[in-house]
Simulated scan of single mutants.
Amino acid sequence: MSDEGAGEPTEASAGDAQPDPPTGRTPPRAAPAASPGAQVATVAAAVVVLIVVAIVFVLQDAQGPPKPAPLVSGATTVRSAPPSDYTPSADESLLPPVPTDIPSSLCPDIALTHPITVLSFNMHGARGPGERVDLARIAREISAWKPDVVLLQEVDDGRARSGFQRQAAVLGKATGMTWVYGGNHSSRGTGPIGNAILSTYEVVDWQNILLPRAGGREQRGLLHAVLNVEGTEVSVYSTHFDHGSTLARVAQARASVRQLAKDPRPTVFGGDLNAGPGGAPLRQLRGAGLGDAWAVGEGAGATVPARSPRRRIDYVLHDGWFKPLQASVLHSAVSDHRAVWTRIELREEVGCIKVGE
């Protein structure tokens, strides 16, 4: 900024007010005087404000000192350090006090689920093409299918045609699974043919129940095992109904239903029933409340004959404790049946939990 012209006096124009004595600042202008009405209104407003302030102080004194704001939910308070000679009593708790309005029970809307893979397989005594026994191949097939529970039919026990092997015991050892066996009928003075159950779960109890022959050709049985599935007892049944008589199959289905009616546990029932989905034995079992795991399968689910199956006679059924997730039919290189592979889910509703009374 240039200093040129600074300090030079300027000539006042005509009519301009004469400048005040040089004091170094411009004097303030006088405010116009307030009217009498405005002065009265100002005084009245000030009086009202004073009255309001007085009332607030009186109310605060009557209510006592202000209360602290409540703690936010989940906040904690820090205790002061105890003296060095402090000794806590035996019943003193470091936890916050339990609220007095806690409910006597809690009923959460949740369920525990346990998926279980179940296989039903008529293994035909491990006799393949040309009646050649190949029990090792059956064991490899079962292991490859990775089941938790296997319901087996036509299992030999010390029969000449299968090399006098105890097939259930051999399969249990080969697959690393626990096994139980129920022999039902024998011929020519040799060992029995029957049903077996293999399981990765602990076998709590088991029994073999003979079914009525009712004119059938051979004695049939219902093998029952109680398994410990992650703390819950589950009943599994393996059976093989008569192949020659419809009357025998119906009688055996009815006997099975009577047995299931006495069993309060979650139940899986499977095997070779020698009847189609619409046959009388299946109507008996379905009418008793058993569901068909093939409800989630694709296609007809045919299992015989193995090479080109046209009929469905092998099943995995379940009661209302279970929900089917997957179902498939698997080919065996040995047996004259295909295996039924299923994935079902055990559902347990969590009941009310008592909190205190």
Rank of each mutant, 00 (worst) to 15 (best):
R258L: 00
Q259A: 09
A169Q: 15
R188N: 13
G189D: 06
E233R: 15
S199A: 07
V229W: 13
V257E: 10
T190L: 06
L273A: 04
G216H: 09
V234A: 11
A248T: 07
G231A: 06
A255Y: 06
A214Q: 12
G270H: 10
V204M: 09
A174T: 03
I193S: 05
G194L: 14
L223Q: 05
T246Y: 04
T200R: 15
D242Q: 09
S256H: 13
D263W: 07
W206M: 01
A174M: 14
V257Y: 15
V180R: 14
T200F: 07
W179V: 00
V203K: 09
A214G: 05
I197R: 14
L210H: 12
G231P: 13
F241E: 02
V236N: 13
S199R: 15
T267I: 01
G221Q: 11
G176A: 08
V257I: 11
G270E: 07
L247G: 09
G216Y: 14
A168S: 14
F164D: 03
A253V: 04
E202F: 12
T239H: 06
L222M: 09
G163Q: 10
G163D: 09
P266W: 01
S187I: 04
E230D: 12
D205V: 00
Q165C: 08
F269Q: 03
Y181L: 03
T239W: 11
R265F: 10
